[in-house]
Design a protein around this nucleic acid. Structure first.
Lengths: 343, 343
DNA sequence: GAAATTTTTTCAAACGTTTGCATTCAATAT
DNA sequence: ATATTGAATGCAAACGTTTGAAAAAATTTC
């Protein structure tokens, strides 16, 4: 009863008193194999549940058909949407996705990449961790580049490498969001910013600032507070905003989670949205359409980013000889809902 | 400039005019290697960025250190929490997670499993697709069993196999949720059920029914409508509920998303929550604490499920000889918030 | 019936690494 | 000088599969 050891081609060959080559060819419908031999072998193989050992093939062909996805987290809507996009394109092509979560840690990111390279992963999709970004350590990436393993940056980019990248136009999205608030007539617009240093945070922040400048609105430092992308982290900063001597009449949150946190605090204080205070988020997460009032937000096409990133990978893979990296910047789109529609 | 081909042990051997065995031993700090030789080889290896080819090792040792995770979707909070739990335990042990999304399709599930087996994955965590569950096709699992590849069911279980499984006690969670509504004094409790046939849906439904029975409350067929786990799918059913001649005074949603959808509809109609209508969800997703009013729900320990599932896998792997499958059922816990606290 | 042709099968190498055993070589003991 | 030891290294097989070239077997041709 040793059914645990997988059946190999050699086992089958022994059974038929023929060579492994014959079995291999029979199973692969090679034309030079006798019809009867082929049938018998195929039937027997099915019977005993033969399943090709892809590991040996990987070694032989130097193709693993596996790709690495290295991301700081998978507990946000956006990240999973990206992964889903990658999956949608790449799974049908036979690729397997190896997901590595770094928890924003440089060390884990480094180890993950090293592991992926050791496993001869054929491509890596990377959204760098905050620690990496902060420290500016990029030696661990040199290795990937040197190996000529296609490396695609997602969202959090890094300028110094000749790699492809797929990002969302955070800047113009943020700009449009704030411009919308201005156009409605809000005068004191606060920003619940993401963690300092991250491209995503900084781009949206820049959009916020530049829009205020464009419309000659004062930039009040005390209206800009940091959050950590999640709901909880928005609670305290929002309270502080609302306790100011001259509180804001609108808040632009770095993402929907943060905006929803702010919404909660505002409602607790009895403020009416959007009459007393306007709110805008970012991401267009599924829930944003169903808060009460529904949340004005900026659509961030995660699925599309994943699909575009796949395309960039495939381009680089099939690139004839010299490959030149592409940068895809997908537009983000303002989605106007109730939370900002003061009449 | 052919730096794309990874450096092998043979390359290094050639450089040092020694045999591959010596290089291998030097790199692995084998004691029988001369100190100088070892140092030189290790230094050179670092210099040229040598990275062990794990594929060849996998073939040799029949160990791939990779695990399959097959789930219907990754776009819900709960699923990603489970994956995170798996990751937390298994990544530090050197395992790589291969994520396969089935989109509730039997065919994709079958293909995914077959692929994972071909890749000689050392264990598989499976939450069966709805199609599989509906059709009751389980031949594709026989293969996994026969191979003695540890198979751990997550959430959606299947009784006929001798496998370990980790699930949440949906039944008692649902029961507690409804009992809570009853205790508050709600009389006409509706249920927005999940898709028929899925264990998760049916168990929660059973909890709902049995609780009503226990308290001798009438079971009204028209107060039980199906949804699809997401926010949108709750909108129409909720509208229908509220348009009934005698509408419910409370709704128990199969999960938070559905409850939030219901909340939105109720508010649109000007109903006050919890005064006019009570609401309870299921999952304790991060957002549920920050809706307005905050949502009473049942905590579903996704991360913990992932970690427990990992433990089950490790048990089976290290099991001495005859292994007996374990079933872990984690308790779910009622989290009382504002949406049901009518005074 | 031998030669030529075609069909079918086998051989051997390759992918990169590890490891038990054999070998080499120098140093030490007799 | 020779045997003995010990340290350092090399050999070869193994993991499972594919594939070009060679070999063998069957068939056709004259």
């Amino acid at each position: 009863m040793n059914s645990s050891r997988p059946v190999t081609i050699k086992d089958i060959a022994r059974r038929f008193r023929c060579s492994p080559s014959t079995v291999s060819r029979a199973l692969n419908d090679h034309p030079a194999i006798n019809e009867d031999t082929r049938k018998n072998i195929q039937e027997y193989a099915r019977e005993v549940g033969y399943q090709r050992n892809e590991v040996s093939l990987s070694l032989l062909n130097k193709k693993t058909a596996s790709l690495g996805v290295v991301v700081p987290t998978i507990s946000n809507y956006y990240e999973t949407a990206v992964i889903e996009g990658l999956h949608t394109v790449l799974q049908p092509m036979g690729y397997t996705l190896n997901i590595c979560v770094t928890n924003e840690s440089y060390l884990l990111e480094k180890e993950s990449l090293s592991k992926l390279l050791s496993n001869r992963t054929e491509g890596i999709f990377l959204s760098v961790s905050q620690e990496t970004y902060d420290a500016g350590y990029y030696e661990h990436l040199e290795n990937v580049i040197q190996r000529k393993t296609p490396l695609i940056f997602i969202d959090r980019e890094y300028e110094d490498f000749e790699t492809s990248r797929a990002t969302v136009d955070d800047y113009h999205g943020a700009f449009a969001a704030v411009e919308h608030l201005v156009s409605i007539g809000y005068k004191q617009i606060a920003h619940l910013k993401g963690p300092n240093g991250l491209t995503v945070s900084e781009q949206r922040f820049k959009g916020y600032i530049n829009c205020l400048k464009k419309y000659n609105m004062p930039i009040r430092e005390e209206l800009i507070l940091n959050t950590n992308f999640n709901v909880e982290s928005a609670i305290l900063p929002t309270k502080r905003l609302l306790e100011l001597a001259s509180p804001p009449d609108a808040i632009f949150g770095v993402n929907d989670q943060v905006a929803i946190g702010a919404m909660r605090v505002a409602k607790d204080r009895g403020l009416r949205i959007p009459q007393d205070i306007g709110l805008v988020g970012f991401d267009n997460s599924p829930i944003s359409a169903y808060t009460f009032p529904s949340l004005t937000t900026v659509h961030r096409p995660g699925r599309k980013i994943g699909m575009e990133a796949s395309r960039l990978f495939l381009n680089q893979l099939n690139g004839s000889g010299d490959f030149s990296p592409e940068s895809i910047v997908l537009p983000s789109e303002l989605v106007i809902r109730e939370s900002s529609l003061r009449i």
